[in-house]
């Protein structure tokens, strides 16, 4: 079959809603886009452990400590799961990891913001995991089988994270004056960065059209963002939290909530590496990676020796 025929057949399968599996033929560009997107996603799960891990040791009750530890542990699991899914495309976790800790590969910018109070942990659960759910629910329908399946499994846990964050934030928003202040302050700080998680506006998003054509995504950045805003407005009202956007208002004609101008300058600045915690995050991940080198070497050396011994014995 010539290239064009293969391509047409590939597109036909996608339009039919079939899943593409690792052994199937796929255009090089499809493979590359998936590797980029999925590895970014995996890196984000892992880097995301840092801002939240920042509060495990200071969590204000044993229950909260357990909840947070379990959440951060889940995120490590998500990272592992997505890395395995990317590896089906013929790359290794190790090279992908080195691309972001030493190179130019990206992870979600949201994790370049600091967690200043414990309320940030709750706001992250509610908003950041909430936004991740909107995005990942779409990705669960992605045309690439392994990615789609990993999302189905991960979404269940993200829903749980969101619920726990939201409930604790509600408690704080209705707690002592200090708790209220922390809760509102956290939401004020996390709101706009969360909206940026969906990526640049559609007219500045170079990859979107292609990803949609190939069924990797089914909605544009702005569509996803809008559906997140719509559901979050009501949730905020319910717990007496104000979203820090004076332009937020219901649009009867569209049936959606209109929101104000997103500070995109800040977004691009953080992407360029100048967010409040960019350097710190990369430094922490590099340190873990480099300080772990001797451990990984020991494990593989031990495995090698053991294999040798087992072979001799049999």
């Amino acid at each position: 079959m010539d290239e064009q025929k293969k391509l047409d057949e590939f597109q036909r399968r996608i339009d039919n809603g079939e899943k593409i599996e690792p052994k199937d033929w796929m255009p090089d560009r499809y493979r590359k886009q998936l590797i980029r997107m999925m590895s970014q996603h995996a890196h984000s799960e892992v880097v995301g452990m840092l801002p939240e891990g920042n509060w495990i040791e200071r969590a204000p009750s044993l229950k909260r400590k357990k909840v947070l530890l379990a959440k951060v542990q889940d995120e490590a699991g998500h990272g592992l799961y997505i890395y395995s899914a990317v590896e089906t495309l013929g790359v290794t976790r190790r090279e992908l990891v080195e691309e972001y800790i030493y190179g130019k590969a990206k992870y979600s910018s949201i994790f370049n913001y600091p967690t200043l109070t414990y309320a940030d942990i709750c706001a992250i659960g509610w908003l950041v995991d909430g936004a991740a759910i909107v995005n990942q629910t779409m990705l669960a329908k992605s045309s690439y089988g392994p990615y789609s399946r990993s999302m189905v499994r991960i979404c269940k846990e993200e829903s749980f994270h969101k619920k726990q964050g939201y409930e604790m934030l509600a408690k704080m928003a209705n707690g002592t004056p200090e708790q209220k202040k922390m809760a509102q302050d956290a939401v004020n700080r996390w709101w706009w960065p969360t909206l940026m998680m969906f990526g640049p506006p559609d007219d500045e998003s170079p990859n979107s059209a292609e990803l949609i054509k190939w069924g990797v995504k089914s909605k544009t950045n702005d569509e996803l963002r809008q559906s997140f805003v719509d559901r979050t407005v009501m949730e905020a009202k319910k717990i007496g939290i104000e979203l820090p956007d004076p332009d937020l208002k219901y649009n009867k004609e569209t049936g959606h909530w209109d929101y104000g101008e997103i500070p995109w300058d800040e977004f691009w600045e953080v992407i360029r590496g100048n967010g409040p915690m960019n350097r710190e995050r990369i430094r922490a991940r590099r340190k873990a990676y480099e300080e772990g080198a001797w451990v990984r070497e020991a494990a593989s050396e031990y495995a090698r020796k053991k294999k040798l011994r087992d072979e001799k014995a049999s």
Partner: peptide, 27 residues
């Protein structure tokens, strides 16, 4: 729990967090 996010390998991050969680649960 200090290892969380700083382990030598993701698998070990998970395992240590898991033991930490058990310890705190037992406590």
């Amino acid at each position: 729990s200090e290892w969380s996010g700083h382990g030598p390998e993701l698998e070990e991050d998970l395992a240590l967090a898991n033991i930490a969680l058990d310890m705190i649960g037992h406590a």
